[in-house]
Amino acid sequence: MTVSMKRIYAIFQKDLKDLSKNLFVSSIVILPVLMAFMYSRMGDILDLHYLIINLTLASVTAFIQCAVIAEEKEKHTLRGLMLSPATLPEILTGKSLVSLILTIVTLVVCMMITGYEPANLVLISFVILLSCLFYLALGTLLGLLTKTVVEASVVILPFMFLFGFGSMLKPLVDDYAILGFVEYLPNTQLVELAYKIESGLGFGSLWSHLAIILTWVIVATILTIFVYRKREMDD
C-alpha cells in the first residue's frame, strides 16, 4: 500500500487552518507554558522539568488530538474522509500532525522557560517523540469513542490527570500496593529514562524503559485502529 503525502498534507493544512480559529481547543497550550513560568523560579530540578513535559504530552498532545477527532465525528466530517480515497494511515497521520507540531513547539518553549538542557538531546528527543506517539493514539482513541467535543473533553480529564501528574504518585507506591501500576505508566517511565540518560547510562540500562513505553504505543495504536474500523460502519 502506498501512502499519499499529498493527502496527508491536505488534511494537515486543513487542520492547521481550522485549529487557528478554534480557541477553545488551541488555548490549552497556555496551561503548560504557565506552569513552566511558575516552576522556572524553583531552579533546575529534573523532576520539575518532566512534570511540565508530561503535562504538555497529556494536555497539548492528547487533549488537542482528542478534541479534533471528536469534532470530526460530531460534525460528520470524518465520514467524508472515510468515504474519500484517503486510507486509515493517511487520515490518522494527517490528523496527528497538527497536535504533534503544537506539542513540539510547546515543549521547546517550556524547556526554554524552565532552562532544561538535556545531557543527550538526541536521545531525549527520541524518547519524548516515542511517548508522543502514545499520547496521540490515546487522544485519537478517546476522540473516536466519544460523540461530541464536550463529551470528549470531559472523558479525557481523568486520563490527563493520570498521565500528566501520575508520576507524582510514585512516592506513595511503597505504602499503597494498588498504586503499583504507576511504575509502569509511560510518564513514570519517561522520568526514569531521563534520570538514567542524565547520569550518562548507556542503552543497556535504558532498553527496558523503552520497551515499556513502546508497549503502550503499540497497545494504544492497535486499540485505535480497531475502534476506527468499527466507526467505519454505522451500526
Binding site: 487552518k17 481550522d18 460534525k75 460528520h76 466530517t77 467524508g80
Partner: peptide
C-alpha cells in the same frame, strides 16, 4: 450525515 468544516470557507 455528510458534514463540512464550519470554520473554513467554502473554497477551503
Amino acid at each position: 450525515n455528510s458534514g463540512l468544516y464550519n470554520r473554513l470557507s467554502i473554497y477551503d
